[in-house]
Computed example of a mutant assay.
Amino acid sequence: MTAPAAKPAAGTGSRSLRQAHPRYAEQLVKALLMIAALVSVATTIGIVIALIPPTVDFFQRVGVWEFLSGTVWTALFAEPEYGVLPLLAATLLITGIAVAVAIPVGLGAAIYLSEYAHPRTRKLLKPTLEVLAGIPTVVYGFFALAFVTPRLQDWWPFGGDGPEIKNALSAGLVMGVMIVPTIASLAEDAMAAVPRSLRDGAYALGSGRRTVAVRVVVPAALSGIVAAFVLGISRAIGETMIVLIAAGARPDLSWNPLHEMQTMTAFIAGAASGDVSTASFEYKTIFAVGAYLFVLTFVMNVISIRLVRKYREVYE
């Protein structure tokens, strides 16, 4: 009887296989992904490097407390004041209106697409919804100015003069529509990643579809849903064209959404595209506001990462 062939040493076969058939395509993809990651990090570092010198020059002349707590912003006037609170208040107000529109609509759309829609309906509705994310924001801005604001003025039911020609309300409403696809798409992806066994277990206990969606799927996908919310909020804070066209350029410290106001991004865009000399001190205010906006978004992203890690669910 022929003796059985000797077994190769552990790991010898796999090593010889890798040596005989190197996976060049996989190595190329790995290198491209590494380059993409490095480009992202380098871009962030480049932004910080570009912001620091002009911002430092700005704060050598203007106190940090004066900048953060001042209630008057007339940086480009003959008698300048550098209180950033009017710009911050407008940014937060318009973002709050947008979030109040986008979160319930986006989350509702995600729940419907994930738990209620027929697969054919989902394949039709989700790409259609995501088309909204590809519309240029300047189109949203003109839509808010030329369509939404006149309708608000015509249908205003609360008396008074109603919204001004440029106002925070129309800008916030249209901005909320703009970020709905971002929230809906990412939240639906997070819900789709929840294992089917969790749904089947809930149905086996007699739960209805609404209970399964609200009590099982949403909590299980909470980390992804929070990430979708934060990404949508970050996009709203950094939006420029909608607020520049529809909200106006009057930096008044007001919490009335019917009034014209100026956000941080609108000031940066307006000042950078105006007649301000790049060598002037007024031009450095752009970098100071930009650095403040960068810090705000960075802090918000850090908080969101902590929330995502706190509510992350790991399934096998």
Rank of each mutant, 00 (worst) to 15 (best):
T265H: 02
R209N: 08
A266S: 15
F287L: 04
S304D: 04
L68G: 08
I111R: 05
S273Q: 14
L85M: 14
F267V: 13
S40E: 11
E115W: 03
A227T: 15
G224R: 09
A37V: 13
I305G: 10
A25H: 04
T137D: 07
A6T: 15
K123S: 15
L222C: 07
I233D: 02
A42S: 09
S14W: 00
L258M: 04
A187W: 00
S234C: 13
F143R: 01
G176D: 06
T263M: 08
V295G: 01
V101Q: 01
L33Q: 12
Y112A: 03
G106H: 06
I35Y: 02
T137W: 05
V295P: 06
L28W: 06
T263C: 12
T211F: 00
R312C: 03
T12W: 06
V226D: 05
K166S: 14
V105Q: 03
A89K: 03
I165R: 15
I97R: 00
V174P: 00
A271V: 13
W255E: 01
L76C: 04
I233T: 14
S16P: 07
A117Q: 04
R306H: 09
L87E: 07
V138Q: 00
L85F: 07
A190Q: 12
L68I: 14
P104A: 09
T12F: 09
L17C: 03
L76Y: 07
T240C: 07
P251T: 13
R250Y: 12
M191K: 09
F229H: 00
P251R: 12
H118S: 14
V180H: 05
I135R: 12
T43K: 03
L244N: 04
L145P: 08
G172Y: 04
L113H: 10
D200Q: 14
Q60D: 14
G224N: 11
Q27R: 13
F77D: 14
Y315T: 14
K310H: 15
A227F: 06
P181H: 03
T278P: 09
I97D: 00
V72R: 15
A246G: 10
E313S: 13
A117E: 02
W156L: 07
F58R: 12
V48C: 07
S69V: 14
R235T: 10
E81F: 10
V289G: 04
M178P: 12
M241N: 10
P195C: 13
A6F: 05
I305V: 11
W155D: 10
R196Q: 15
A202E: 08
N167H: 04
V230D: 03
G11S: 05
E316F: 14
E81V: 12
A109N: 02
R196V: 11
P195T: 12
P53K: 11
N301W: 01
V56A: 12
I242C: 12
P53H: 03
V138W: 02
A9R: 13
A20R: 12
G46H: 08
G248N: 07
A78M: 11
R61A: 13
A247H: 05
